[in-house]
């Protein structure tokens, strides 16, 4: 088991109603984390987080970064204690 911390912004925070939390994962995979979050918060979160056509993290308007600022993908592994930020992917104006 590993522990992974999450930080939520914008739409992610609106759905979860919290700024962040921790998950205990049996497998150290991003896919495992995404499934855990989607299961916990239901279809709105699942639609925001996972593209069911490709089973990848949904990339339209969203971004997911590890603590070093690298974007994560479903197939990536996670280190124990890692923090993943769930952000909007928008700029400009």
């Amino acid at each position: 088991m590993i522990t992974v911390h999450t930080q939520y912004q914008a739409r992610f925070r609106e759905i979860t109603r919290i700024a962040g939390e921790s998950f205990e994962l049996a497998a150290p995979l991003v896919a495992e984390l995404a499934t855990a979050i989607a299961n916990k918060y239901g279809p709105q979160m699942e639609s925001l987080l996972i593209d069911r056509k490709t089973n990848e993290l949904n990339a339209s308007g969203t971004m997911y970064l590890d603590s070093k600022g690298r974007r994560i993908y479903m197939e990536d592994t996670l280190a124990d204690g890692e923090t993943i930020a769930f952000l909007v992917g928008i700029a400009g104006g």
Binding site: R11, E14, N58, S60, L87, I90
Partner: peptide
């Protein structure tokens, strides 16, 4: 309409970027 992320943008527009940039240093 099927893009869930849109709902956040209805409320914040491009200002949704403020927190994201504060997170990354942008």
């Amino acid at each position: 309409d099927s893009n869930e992320a849109i709902y956040g943008f209805k409320r914040r527009g491009t200002l949704g970027a403020v927190e994201m940039y504060q997170h990354i240093g942008g």
